[in-house]
Structure formats: structure tokens, C-alpha cells
């Protein structure tokens, strides 16, 4: 059996997702969205505050320019304001909004292919190193470095699939909705991304197993 920590991964992002997807929270977001469709600015501000941090952190995975990040966050939530009335409940509100952010991001990557850089900016990376005083944390910092370089080598669609799954904790079906493609396409992108990462990050595979092992015999 997989341990509980693996059923819902223990890192902060997945924990956020667990909290966020609580039924009450989803219902509240749906109410906000309906109010926004009636041009309710109070509801819009609630939704904005709810998603500003999440979208900023997600988009920061693809560019270190904070002005571009804010521009994309506001572009995403501007689309939400304009099109809230068209939401038909075919997905979660969160999935719908992330889908809008995804399209804004892809447009940005298409229009300015040279600008975005993968992950946190250099200063953030340096700060992470400096904040790793012991061996364990130093290894974590090294892991993040390896990942940053490995992810940078992936095509945009594959990189996006990994980020949506591992950073935002989206399911395969949700990613298909976000990327507006078939579930099979998501699986294929994830498969190829994993193979590439395997080839570019061999060090990760040769080290110790994670703290809680994957399966029991």
C-alpha cells in the first residue's frame, strides 16, 4: 500500500489543493463567479484575492519577470470578469480559471519566446542555496537546480503538463480540460516528458529512494 502521504502528496502545493478543493470552497467560488457575471465587484475582488497568489506562483515557473507575471495574472482575471457568464459548470471553477491562465501563458510564450526563463529567477535560486545550511537542505537545493535545468529542456507543452500535475496538483482529466486536448494527449505528453527528464536527470534516479517508499512487496 502507498502511505497516506503519497495519496495526497505532503508538499505545500498539493496541500493547498486539498484545502482549496473542499466542497464549501468550490461552492463559494461558484457563487462568486455567478455574482461576477452580474458585474458584482465585491465578488470579483474575493475571487481575485483567492487566485492572485496561486496564479502568480504558477506563472512564475515560466518567467522571472514580475511585470510580465502581473500582466498575465490580470489578463487572466480580466477574462474571468468578461466571461464569467459563459461558465457552464463543466469543470471546477479552479480548472476553468487555470485554463484561462494557461492560454495567456502560451500566448506569452509564443509572442516572446526569448523572454521567459524556467522557474524562479537567479536571485531566488541563490537565495535557496544560501538558505540551505545543512547537507539535507543543500541536496534539496541541488535537486531543484537539476530540475530547473531539466525542465528547461522540455518542449512547452510537456513542461506545462508536468507543472500542472506536480505544481498545481491537477488530475489528468483536469489537465486535458485546461489544455483543451484529449486525455490521451495529456498521457502522451506526460510520458515523453518523463522519458526526457529521465535522460537529462540521471542523478535523481540513482540516489536514495524517497523517505516513504513507493510500494510494498
Amino acid at each position: 500500500m502507498l502511505e497516506d502521504g503519497h495519496r495526497r502528496s505532503p508538499d505545500r502545493v498539493s496541500q493547498r489543493r486539498t484545502d482549496h478543493d473542499h466542497a464549501t470552497g468550490s461552492a463559494t467560488e461558484l457563487e462568486w463567479l455567478r455574482a461576477i457575471a452580474r458585474q458584482d465587484r465585491v465578488a470579483f475582488e474575493h475571487l481575485y484575492r483567492q487566485y492572485h497568489g496561486l496564479l502568480s506562483r504558477f506563472l512564475a515557473r515560466f518567467t522571472s519577470r514580475r511585470d510580465v507575471i502581473e500582466e498575465m495574472v490580470n489578463e487572466t482575471l480580466w477574462v474571468v470578469w468578461r466571461t464569467a457568464g459563459s461558465f457552464r459548470g463543466e469543470s471546477k471553477v479552479r480548472t476553468w480559471i487555470i485554463g484561462i491562465a494557461y492560454r495567456c501563458l502560451m500566448k506569452q510564450l509564443r509572442d516572446h519566446p526569448a523572454e521567459p526563463t524556467y522557474g524562479a529567477g537567479e536571485r531566488d535560486q541563490e537565495a535557496l542555496h544560501e538558505a540551505a545550511p545543512d547537507e539535507s537542505e543543500a541536496r534539496q537545493a541541488e535537486l531543484r537546480d537539476w530540475l530547473r535545468h531539466g525542465m528547461a529542456l522540455l518542449p512547452d507543452e510537456q513542461r506545462m503538463t508536468i507543472e500542472l500535475a506536480y505544481y498545481l496538483g491537477q488530475s489528468c482529466e483536469e489537465i486535458a480540460a485546461i489544455m483543451n486536448c484529449a486525455v490521451g494527449t495529456v498521457k502522451a505528453r506526460m510520458f515523453h516528458a518523463r522519458v526526457r527528464l529521465r535522460n537529462t536527470l540521471p542523478e535523481l534516479g540513482g540516489e536514495d529512494s524517497p523517505p516513504t517508499h513507493s510500494a510494498q512487496a
Partner: peptide, 29 residues
């Protein structure tokens, strides 16, 4: 492979801490 993906997942879970101030951004929107 599970162990490898677990490490990737853990490595990507690090916060970049880039979110700017909410209110000025909201006002601009």
C-alpha cells in the same frame, strides 16, 4: 520510476515566492 517521479514532484513543489502585492495589482485591473 515512482521514486524518481516522487523526487521530481517534491523538487517542483518549492515556492518561488514571487507573488506581488495584491491591492495595487487589483486596482490596476
Amino acid at each position: 520510476e515512482y521514486a524518481f517521479q516522487f523526487r521530481v514532484h517534491a523538487g517542483l513543489g518549492v515556492e518561488a515566492g514571487v507573488a506581488g502585492e495584491v491591492q495595487p495589482a487589483f486596482d490596476r485591473l
